[in-house]
Simulated scan of single mutants.
Amino acid sequence: MADLALLERLCCARGISGCEEEIREIILEEIRPYADCVEVTPLGNLLAFKKGANRAKTKLMLNAHMDEVGMTVTYIEDNGLLRFATVGGIDRRVLCGKPVTVGKGIPGVIGAKPIHLLTSEEREKSVPVKDLYIDIGALSRQEAEEAVSPGDPVTFDSLFDTAHGMIKSRALDDRAGCAILIDLLKKPLAYDMLFAFVVQEETGLNGSKTAAYIADPDAAIVVESTTAADVAGVPEDKQVCHVGSGPVLSFMDRRTIYDRAYYQMAFDAAKETGVSCQAKQAVAGGNDAGAIHVSRGGVRTVAVSLPCRYLHSAVSLISQKDFHEAETLIERLAEKIAGGE
């Protein structure tokens, strides 16, 4: 099963969309001794091919994205404060007061107008990103420019904690998927398979689009995290999926109608391996499948996701049980697809 120490290393590395180099180097270090062929594409995807005991009857690509949501510096004020834009779909409600790291390791905090200066109406609303700033402690533009520049990436600072059978960290979307694929690649395979660790999922599925074009697979398994809304105040029929109830299988989202036969095959694989799984009970969101399934002449695609609370925030939460059971399910499903079932 995937190593939690490796997952911690991946989650603590910094890599917003377009700045995935640190993540890619960790993955390369892990997989080079096991892959038969490794390629870094012009956009920055990492494609790794591994031979199995048998030639695949169906050419299969397993996909996870390396990037995380974050921010980027856009402007430096005369007083040294930094204006920024979000990179990916961050909920602005979670931003104010969060500690961050800017550029090459510069600590900062996201700030806003002091609460005692807000009107009663302003206190009831989340602060727009245009009214937020990052404070690195610089007292002038010149001082700030010695440390940071427009275009520098900004990532949340957060913990990595495994208490109570859970995993709490930033960037679990999709470093957990990367960790699963790394562990699968290290194992003996029944069939040849291609592993794609892709860039820029959070900003438009750019990496998966180009990876699928290069790889030209017949089928794909997308390994992801998806929103679990099983929290206080959310009606049962709106909770989408539940942490601790096993990996999530999607029949449709806003970008993809998933292959119906593979969707059912995933449930069969879960039954065969004795792991729990659940259907995603909403047509919402999207992932790399949106680009992969329409590549070239079309790719039969299935998604296996980890139920994740507080997605796209400074700290997300998944279950260790779901994490390990997802790998078991994906391993069996990949074998069935590559074997031509």
Rank of each mutant, 00 (worst) to 15 (best):
A5Q: 13
E8A: 10
E8H: 08
C11H: 08
A13E: 10
A13Y: 02
R14E: 15
C19K: 09
E25R: 15
I27G: 07
I31C: 04
P33V: 11
V38A: 02
V40H: 03
T41E: 11
G44I: 07
N45M: 10
N45A: 08
A48D: 13
K50R: 10
K51Y: 06
K51M: 06
G52H: 12
R55V: 11
K57Q: 13
T58A: 11
L60S: 10
M61G: 06
N63H: 12
H65M: 08
M66C: 05
E68T: 09
G70I: 09
G70P: 00
T72M: 11
T72E: 07
I76W: 04
E77D: 14
D78P: 00
D78L: 04
D78E: 15
N79G: 02
L81R: 15
V87M: 04
G97I: 04
V100Y: 12
V100W: 13
K104I: 06
K104Y: 09
P107L: 11
K113H: 07
P114D: 11
T119H: 00
T119F: 01
S120Y: 11
E124H: 05
V127R: 13
K130N: 05
L139H: 12
L139F: 07
Q142E: 15
E143K: 07
E143F: 05
E145Q: 10
E145H: 02
E146G: 12
V154D: 07
T155H: 08
D157N: 15
S158D: 10
G165H: 10
L172T: 00
G177Y: 02
G177K: 02
I180L: 15
I180P: 00
L181A: 14
L184D: 06
L185N: 04
L185E: 04
P188A: 04
L194G: 02
A196Q: 08
V198D: 11
E201N: 09
N206E: 14
G207I: 05
Y213H: 07
A215W: 07
P217V: 12
A219S: 11
V223H: 01
A228G: 02
A228F: 01
A229L: 15
C241M: 06
H242A: 01
G244Y: 03
G246S: 01
V248F: 04
V248D: 06
L249P: 00
F251G: 01
R254H: 05
I257M: 13
Y258I: 04
A261K: 11
F267I: 07
A269L: 03
A282E: 15
N287W: 00
A289H: 07
G290C: 05
I292K: 12
G297E: 10
G298V: 13
R300M: 05
S305F: 01
R309H: 09
Y310T: 02
S319I: 05
S319Y: 02
Q320E: 14
H324F: 12
E325V: 01
A326F: 01
I330R: 04
L333Y: 10
A338V: 09
